[in-house]
């Protein structure tokens, strides 16, 4: 079986073709310009992940919220659950870029970190 994907690992957006055998294992990946495309295609077939960005409430900061991101991609299917956690959280100013806001969100092993000072 063949699957067509568009790589989202960089703005180039390569068209990738993945060949799968009968048991759904990846046989080959073609169309990618670089290695990241290969990795993207293989993860996309087994456990698709996405990086998540949002905002978290801040007490006593220059703005009511501070932007955050997942320090690494999280499973795509968990995005909405992660959002619930993020929306429940509040942190106190001052916040610095890179500060851990939520540790190991929902047991994914991924931290949610601040992406601006506040």
């Amino acid at each position: 079986m063949q699957k067509n994907l568009i790589c989202i690992a960089c703005p180039r957006g390569c068209y990738i073709t993945v060949d799968l055998n009968d048991s759904g294992e990846v046989v080959s990946v073609t169309g990618n310009t670089c290695k990241r495309g290969d990795t993207y295609a293989r993860t996309e077939m087994t456990n698709p992940t996405r990086s998540l960005t949002s905002t978290v409430k801040v007490e006593g900061g220059a703005h009511p919220v501070v932007p955050v991101k997942s320090a690494a991609p999280v499973p795509k299917g968990m995005l909405f659950e992660c959002m619930k956690e993020i929306n429940r959280a509040t942190i106190k100013a001052p916040v610095k870029i890179g500060d851990k806001v939520i540790e190991n969100i929902l047991g994914t092993g991924v931290d949610i970190v601040a992406t601006n000072n506040c």
Binding site: I6, C7, I8, C10, P11, G13, R50, K76
Partner: peptide, 11 residues
């Protein structure tokens, strides 16, 4: 960008 169609709409 195509990647934004994929990760912002299709997803």
């Amino acid at each position: 960008l195509t990647r934004n169609i994929v990760q912002c709409l299709n997803d």
